[in-house]
Nucleic acid binder design. Sequence first.
DNA 1: TTCAATGTTTGGAACGTTCCAAAAATGTGG
DNA 2: CCACATTTTTGGAACGTTCCAAACATTGAA
Lengths: 335, 335
Amino acid sequence: MGQRPTILDVAKKAGVSKSTVSLVLQKNSAVKESTRVAVRQAMADIGYVYNRSAATLRSSCSGLIGLVINDLRNPFFAEFATSFQMELAQNGFATVLANTDEDPLLQSRMISSLIEHGVSGFVISPSYGQEEDTLAVIEAAGVPALQVFRSLSQGDNRFPFVAPDYKLGGTRATEHLLEMGCKRIAFLGGLNGRPVTQERMSGYLDVIARNNQEPVVLTGEATRQFGKKMVDKLAADHPDVDGVICFNDLVGLGVLSACVELGIRVGRDLRVVGFDDIEDCQDSFPAMSSVSCHIPDFAKTTAAQILSWINDGVCPPDQQRSDVELVIRASSGQA
Amino acid sequence: MGQRPTILDVAKKAGVSKSTVSLVLQKNSAVKESTRVAVRQAMADIGYVYNRSAATLRSSCSGLIGLVINDLRNPFFAEFATSFQMELAQNGFATVLANTDEDPLLQSRMISSLIEHGVSGFVISPSYGQEEDTLAVIEAAGVPALQVFRSLSQGDNRFPFVAPDYKLGGTRATEHLLEMGCKRIAFLGGLNGRPVTQERMSGYLDVIARNNQEPVVLTGEATRQFGKKMVDKLAADHPDVDGVICFNDLVGLGVLSACVELGIRVGRDLRVVGFDDIEDCQDSFPAMSSVSCHIPDFAKTTAAQILSWINDGVCPPDQQRSDVELVIRASSGQA
DNA sequence: TTCAATGTTTGGAACGTTCCAAAAATGTGG
DNA sequence: CCACATTTTTGGAACGTTCCAAACATTGAA
């Protein structure tokens, strides 16, 4: 017994069979309370630790969930990953993290690796490109997978998709700026052609059209740098813009930063709304209004869905949109 | 064969024994090139996927590394986790992530869970408290564990510890502000009594003493909010302060934000240096000077060390300090 | 042609669980 | 005290790999 004790050692110590010990481990209600206690005691005494590899092999259920994220450096995803991981942990599942850095090749490799490790399910915010391959591997393996935030397969219902109602967010943000008296509102950032960009933008475009304004759209990388650059561009090409909807908060923070630098008074000369409501929004100057999907709640829902799919075979609906809330702060501020 | 194909199916298909297939899987050089190719082909043909649970069970080597992080919402750790994970992936290891949110109880639970999953090693930036327990579990399990950034066991050499040279960072930052002509320099943020705080601060204190200045120290939470609050406090209690060293970038960003709000010209009225050099530093206004440990390099080193410990039994030295660089930007700017 | 050395392949026995059908223990009503 | 239902417990047989000692092939030298 130089090695780690096994279920067999526990059984011997407790004077029962290994099967009984196994039942205790699985919290099976058939085992009598008194023996349960005895077994638990024996475990504690000899310092037993559960070997999940063995369990997984036999039962093909690993208690592992793969979380595949396209950009963990974006605080939005970091916040999501954090909440999600904690939620899973509460349910006895461990999270295997894979950051794909927007690289579909890396993504394929990582997904394969996760499958090898026997993850019981995937939650995946996919990187674009190589779409067939990526999903095909998961499908072939027959592992439940939930797409979040982005979808590679919108419409073909191979993998259910959950996301905040981006369009509604765009709508709300735009309406808000109109109410605040903005006469010319621009939409900034987000790669052109990407579904997420399109949705957020379409909310904006609808409202703009309905109010007979002319849209100003400057798509591009969803980064702080891009946000900064666009402030110059706006000043040069569209001096009448007095409100901007940003594709996400990073762009928004870039805008704020540039405005401060140029002496543009955010909340007066220019009203700014971001998207995602990452924590930074509360502490920027000025504090930034943003469309929130309530990350912790969203993560909780996501976790619940993948778990009930795994545990009870309940496959989530094809496509779901969660509500969003516009959190109003000084950047789009009161007059 | 309704189930996933196994090594045995591959063997049959390729006309060899399962042992040979296993050898191929392990990239053993004993197997002849031609059979290697044949086996690989067979795998591809029948869509074989490696079952690591089985391999782990037999070989007790899981290819899994546990990354335990005290606060993944802090971009610094998110950036580290990202780099680390990618580095491991390149070496065929998967990263199981656990965020402990500064909660030692959660930490204990998560570590136990990771051990059950058979992680081959830990890299851990620990939450404080309950120290004995936390480390005892890992020690009992005999799993290699590397502490990063923080150490629960400084001195008792149970687990090697790697961190940036915090003190040197404090020194460099302070010297820099002196060179820029600051007459009164404050140190802001970081929980009192924590080793990391002490180290960063001691670099500061040394330089201050050597230059016959009087120190101004305001410890506290390492958050943006705290940074903001302290600007008011400085203005009220220490109006002569013209330079601040911040415990970390979050505090620094808070300071910047408050300064902009109050019309304090950062880089002129007040010079600011942060710590960690997270990506935000480049895009704040003004861009923030910060002590960098070169996160990607640091992650690479860490990954290399834990891997060589696991693979080759090379236990890293008890304590290591990596070099830091002061990245100078506008917040501490040129005169 | 034979022998030794070297290069390749192989069958069975692990690894530590869970699953299952069946056995043993316990409880109940007559 | 028996027959029966019910509650607990149990011994193998998996699960899909890796490991090992031994078998088989091939090569070069004698």
